[in-house]
C-alpha cells in the first residue's frame, strides 16, 4: 500500500435546481408562466481519501447523496464544487485511459442488452474496452466459475431472474479487470442467499485482483461483511468516517430478537431479557421483538428458548436507518 490515496475527494458538492410543481391541473397551468425552483444540495461538501485495495462502505438513507457521490467519481455528473481525483485522473474529463481502469455497477440500472444473451454483451464490452482475446477468455472463465453462471450466459437476459441478471451485470463490469470498482446497491432486491453469494464474490474479487471498491448498500450485513471502513452520509454531509466496528460498538449496541410463541406470554416475562420493542397477541398469534445487548444476544436467545414457549426465533442486525439515526443524534449532541 502506498501513501498517496487512489481516490481523493475534497469539499465535493452537487447542487440540483429542482422545479416544484404545484399539484393538480391548476398547478400545471400555473407552471406554464411561473415556476418556482429550489436548490437541492444532494452532496454538500464531502471530503475523504481512499487507498489502494480498500473496500469502503457508503452508508446512508435514501437520498442521502451516496449515489450522487459515486456518479461524480465516475464522471457522470459535473460537481458544483470540488474536483475529485480517481487514479490520478479527473473523472469528468472522461479519458479512455481512466475509463478502462474503473467500473460502475448500479443495482437499479442494467447495462446488459435486454433482448440478447449476456454473452453478447460480454463480447461487446470486449470490443469497447479493447480487451485482448486471451485476457478476455481467462477473465470470463474465472468470473463465470466464481459466480456459477455457465448455464445462463447463453439465455436472453430478459428471461433471467433478478439475481442471475445481477451476476451477469457484475461479470460484464469486471471483464476489463478494473482497478477501481463502484458498486451502487449491488444487492438491492435480492434474496438472502443471493446477497451472500454476491458478497462472497465481491470479497474474492477484491482479494484476487487487489481492486479498490466503494460500495453503497442498504443492508447492514453487506457493509458489515465486506467493509472495514465505512463512511456515513446524511443529507449530503459526511457524519462519520472510520472503522465500521467502531460504529457498531458505539451505536449499534443492540441486536434484535424476533420471537414467535405458541402460547400467550406476558410483557413482564419478556422484560426480564431485554427491552421490549414490539409485543402483540390476538388470541392465536403471539409475537414480540426484543432489543438485547449485542454481546449477550446468543446467550439471551438460549435463555428465552429454555424459559418461554418459543416456536421461532431470529437474531437480526438493527436496520441501517436505526444506526444512522443513532449516530446522527449523538454526533449532533456532541456539537
Amino acid at each position: 500500500m502506498t501513501d498517496t490515496p487512489l481516490i481523493s475527494v475534497k469539499n465535493l458538492s452537487k447542487h440540483f435546481k429542482v422545479y416544484k410543481k404545484q399539484p393538480g391541473l391548476w398547478g400545471s397551468i400555473k407552471s406554464l408562466w411561473h415556476r418556482e425552483y429550489e436548490t437541492v444540495k444532494a452532496v454538500d461538501g464531502i471530503s475523504f481519501d481512499i487507498h489502494e485495495g480498500e473496500i469502503v462502505g457508503f452508508i446512508g438513507m435514501n437520498g442521502a447523496g451516496k449515489t450522487t457521490t459515486l456518479k461524480m467519481l465516475s464522471g457522470l455528473l459535473y460537481p458544483t464544487t470540488g474536483t475529485p481525483s480517481v487514479l490520478g485522473y479527473n473523472p469528468w474529463e472522461r479519458k479512455a485511459a481512466f475509463q478502462k481502469q474503473f467500473a460502475l455497477v448500479m443495482g437499479q440500472k442494467n447495462q446488459l442488452w435486454w433482448d440478447l444473451p449476456a454473452i453478447e454483451t460480454f463480447h461487446l464490452n470486449k470490443a469497447i474496452y479493447e480487451i485482448p482475446d486471451e485476457q478476455f477468455e481467462k477473465t470470463l472463465n474465472k468470473l463465470v466459475k466464481l459466480l456459477d453462471v455457465e448455464d445462463i450466459i447463453q439465455i436472453q437476459v430478459r428471461k433471467l431472474s433478478l439475481g442471475q441478471r445481477m451476476k451477469c451485470e457484475l461479470i460484464a463490469a469486471l471483464l476489463h479487470n478494473p482497478k477501481v470498482l463502484f458498486l451502487d446497491e449491488p444487492t438491492i432486491g435480492l434474496d438472502v442467499v443471493m446477497q451472500k453469494t454476491l458478497r462472497d464474490f465481491i470479497k474474492a474479487y477484491n482479494k484476487e485482483f487487489g481492486a479498490t471498491i466503494i460500495l453503497t448498500s442498504h443492508y447492514m450485513d453487506d457493509v458489515k461483511e465486506l467493509c472495514e471502513r465505512a463512511i456515513i452520509i446524511d443529507h449530503g454531509k459526511k457524519i462519520f468516517d472510520g472503522k465500521l466496528q467502531d460504529i457498531i460498538d458505539k451505536y449499534a449496541r443492540n441486536k434484535i430478537l424476533s420471537l414467535v410463541f405458541s402460547k400467550s406470554v406476558t410483557k413482564k416475562d419478556l422484560a426480564a431479557f431485554g427491552t421490549v420493542k414490539e409485543f402483540s397477541e390476538d388470541g392465536t398469534h403471539y409475537t414480540a421483538t426484543l432489543l438485547v445487548a449485542r454481546k449477550e444476544a446468543a446467550t439471551t436467545a438460549s435463555k428465552v428458548l429454555s424459559k418461554l414457549p418459543v416456536v421461532d426465533v431470529t437474531i437480526e442486525e438493527p436496520p441501517i436507518e436505526a444506526i444512522i439515526r443513532e449516530v446522527f443524534s449523538k454526533e449532533k449532541a456532541k456539537k
Binding site: K71, S74, G75, L76, R94, A96, Q99, K100, F102, A103, L104, M106, K109, Q111, N125, I128, Y129, E130
Partner: peptide, 12 residues
C-alpha cells in the same frame, strides 16, 4: 430517464 450512464462511463 438517465440511461446513458453506460456510454458516459465507458471508453466509448
Amino acid at each position: 430517464e438517465g440511461k446513458i450512464d453506460y456510454f458516459l462511463t465507458r471508453p466509448f
